[in-house]
Simulated scan of single mutants.
Amino acid sequence: MLRLTRLNDSELWLNPLLIEMVEATPDAVVTLTNGHKYIVRENPEKIAADIVQFYRSIGIAGVASAKGGAP
């Protein structure tokens, strides 16, 4: 699960497998596959990095090699 922060500082936990899109408008808007949208404080780059880390932790994303291989 990803821990994100809403604009009112409340904590929000989302399943990364359900994230369809993250937009910067200028706040980050996370859209889930069911159409629900959440505006959060984290920037899209941090959210993307957290999603990759989650995928790696459950074994569905490879680890980049030291020679610059893709994640």
Rank of each mutant, 00 (worst) to 15 (best):
Tyr55Gly: 04
Asp50Lys: 13
Pro16Glu: 00
Ala24Ser: 12
Asp27Tyr: 10
Ala48Pro: 01
Asp9Met: 02
Pro71Val: 15
Ile51Met: 15
Gly59Gln: 08
Arg41Trp: 02
Thr31Tyr: 06
Ala70Arg: 15
Tyr55Met: 10
Met21Ala: 09
Glu45Cys: 03
Ala28Trp: 05
Arg3Trp: 02
Thr33Ile: 11
Leu4His: 00
Lys46Cys: 10
Gly68Cys: 08
Gly62Leu: 10
Ala70His: 14
Tyr55Thr: 00
Gly62Arg: 12
Leu2Asp: 03
Leu12Gly: 08
Ser57Trp: 00
Ser65Phe: 02
Leu14Ile: 14
Pro44Ala: 14
Asn43Pro: 03
Leu18Gly: 05
Phe54Glu: 08
Glu20Ala: 13
Pro26Ile: 11
Asp50Glu: 11
Gln53Leu: 13
Thr25Tyr: 07
Ile51Lys: 12
Ile58His: 05
Ser65Glu: 09
Gly68Asn: 05
Asn34Val: 03
Lys37Glu: 15
Leu12Ser: 09
Gly68Ser: 06
Asn34Phe: 03
Leu32Ile: 03
Asp9Thr: 02
Lys37Met: 14
Leu12Glu: 09
Leu7Cys: 02
Ala61Glu: 14
Leu2Gln: 05
Arg56Trp: 03
Gly35Met: 08
Ser10Thr: 11
Pro16Tyr: 01
Ile19Asp: 00
Tyr38Val: 06
Thr31Glu: 15
Leu7Ala: 06
Gly59Arg: 07
Ile47Pro: 08
Glu42Val: 06
Pro44Ile: 12
Thr31Arg: 14
Leu17Glu: 14
Gly69Gln: 07
Asp50Pro: 00
Ala66Arg: 12
Glu20Gly: 08
